[in-house]
Nucleic acid binder design. Structure first.
Length: 360
DNA sequence: AAGCCGTGGGC
DNA sequence: TGCCCAAGGCT
C-alpha cells in the first residue's frame, strides 16, 4: 500500500530528487567535482570504498580529515596493501569501530593480491570483501560502477519511511523500505540517486526539525501530509546503558616516555594500544592494587568515557619508573606517543596523568 | 537475531 | 546533563 504510493510517482520523484541534487550536492573530498562528472569522469573505486567504510556510523565532518590523510599516505589500494595492520591502526586511531581498520587492511590485501588491484563491480563480488556489507556493496556498485543497486543506509531509511509513511518499527521495516525504494531507483543515474537521497537525509530530511519547506519531495511525502514527519522512522526502544569501572596505570620514565601495550586483536578496541590497566568490571572497583607491577602509584585523576553499550569510569594512577619494559610492553617516547594507535579513551587517561604529553 | 563495537556533536 | 544520532558489519 505505502510502496504503491511511492512507486506510482517514481519517475517524477527521481527526477525531482536528481534535479535538486544537481543544484545542492554537497562538495566532499571523496566526490568528483561537478565539472569532472560532466566530462564523464568515473570515480576511483578505491576512494569510494575507503570513504564508504569510513562513513559507516560516522559523521561526514569526522571522516574528512582521515580520508585526506589516508589518501595522501596510500593513494591506491596496492599502496595500502603494502602497509602493515599497525600502520593502518595508527592512522585510524580516534575514528572508532576499529574492526573497520582491521578489515580495511584485509580487504586491501584481497583486492591487491588476489584481484589484480581491481575492485569487483558487482554487489555480490563486493559483498564478499571483508568489512563490506549489504549497504557498502550497494553503495560502491552504484557510485563507482553505475550499477542500479538499491542503496539503503540510515538516511535513506529515514527519507523512505517518511515519504511512504511506513510506521513499522526498525529494523523490522527493512523489507518494506526496500520494496518501496526498489521501483524508484534511477536506472540512468543510480550513483547520483543514492547520494542524492543521502544528501537529502543529511541536510533537509533530518531526524529532528526537517526542513520540509525546502524538500524536493514535499509534494508527495506521506509523513508531511500527515503533519508529523518527525514521527518517522519508528524505532524500538533500547535498553539502558550499564556502567563499568577500571584502573589505568601510566608509568613515566625519566625522559618522559610512557609504558604501552597492545590490546588483544579481537573485541573492544581490538589491536589498539593502551596503558596497562585492570579489567573493566561492573561489580568491583579496581584500584592501585591492580597495578601491573609494584611501584609508588599515585592517584592522578578519574576519567569517564562513553562507549556504545556501556559507560566507563577509569581511575588513573601514575608512577615514575626506569628500567626495561616488562614483557609485551614498550616504552613510547614523547615524540612518538601521539603517533601510537591510541583510542580516545586511552588518550584521556594519558592526558589525566601527563597533561600536555599528547599535544602537538 | 540481537548484542557487540567508538567517537564527537547537537540540542 | 543526558540522550540521540551518524553513509553498518560481524557473529
Amino acid at each position: 500500500m505505502t510502496a504503491k504510493l511511492l512507486s506510482r510517482t517514481d519517475a517524477f520523484e527521481a527526477e525531482r530528487l536528481l534535479a535538486w541534487y544537481d543544484r545542492h550536492a554537497r562538495v566532499l573530498p571523496w566526490r568528483l567535482a561537478p565539472a569532472d562528472l560532466r566530462r564523464g569522469q568515473q570515480p576511483d573505486p578505491y576512494r569510494v570504498w575507503l570513504s564508504e567504510v569510513m562513513l559507516q556510523q560516522t559523521t561526514v565532518e569526522a571522516v574528512k580529515k582521515y580520508f585526506l590523510a589516508f589518501t595522501a599516505k596510500w593513494p591506491t589500494v596496492t599502496a595500502m596493501a603494502a602497509a602493515s595492520e599497525d600502520d593502518i591502526l595508527r592512522a585510524w586511531a580516534g575514528l572508532g569501530y576499529y574492526s573497520r581498520a582491521r578489515n580495511l587492511k584485509k580487504c586491501a590485501d584481497v583486492v591487491a593480491k588476489d584481484l589484480g588491484g581491481r575492485f569487483p563491480q558487482t554487489e555480490d563480488g563486493l559483498r564478499a570483501l571483508p568489512g563490506v556489507g549489504a549497504y557498502t556493496a550497494a553503495a560502491i556498485a552504484a557510485i563507482a560502477f553505475n550499477r542500479p543497486a538499491v542503496v539503503i543506509d540510515g538516511n535513506i531509511e529515514r527519507v523512505t519511511t517518511r515519504v511512504a509513511a511506513i510506521d513499522t518499527p526498525l529494523p523490522q521495516a527493512k523489507s518494506q523500505i526496500r520494496a518501496a525504494l526498489t521501483p524508484v531507483v534511477s536506472a540512468d543515474r543510480p550513483g547520483d540517486f543514492a547520494q542524492a537521497m543521502m544528501d537529502l537525509g543529511a541536510t533537509i530530511c533530518t531526524p529532528r526539525r526537517p526542513a520540509c519547506i525546502l524538500c524536493p519531495l514535499n509534494e508527495t511525502c506521506r509523513a508531511l501530509f500527515l503533519g508529523e514527519p518527525e514521527r518517522f522512522p519508528v524505532k524500538k526502544t533500547k535498553a539502558d546503558k550499564p556502567t563499568r569501572q577500571g584502573a589505568a596505570f601510566v608509568a613515566v620514565r625519566a625522559d618522559g616516555a610512557i609504558l604501552l601495550r597492545k590490546r588483544p586483536d579481537k573485541g573492544l578496541l581490538g589491536g589498539m594500544a593502551e596503558v596497562p590497566g585492570s579489567t573493566w568490571s561492573a561489580d568491583v572497583k579496581p584500584g592501585a592494587d591492580d597495578a601491573p607491577f609494584p611501584s609508588d602509584w599515585m592517584p592522578s585523576g578519574v576519567i569517564t568515557h562513553i562507549f556504545t553499550h556501556f559507560s566507563l569510569t577509569l581511575s588513573v594512577y601514575r608512577t615514575r619508573f626506569n628500567g626495561a619494559a616488562p614483557p609485551g610492553m614498550w616504552w613510547s617516547v614523547p615524540a612518538a606517543v601521539s603517533g601510537e594507535a591510541l583510542p580516545t579513551v586511552m588518550k584521556k587517561a594519558i592526558e589525566a596523568a601527563c597533561p600536555g604529553l599528547l599535544s602537538p
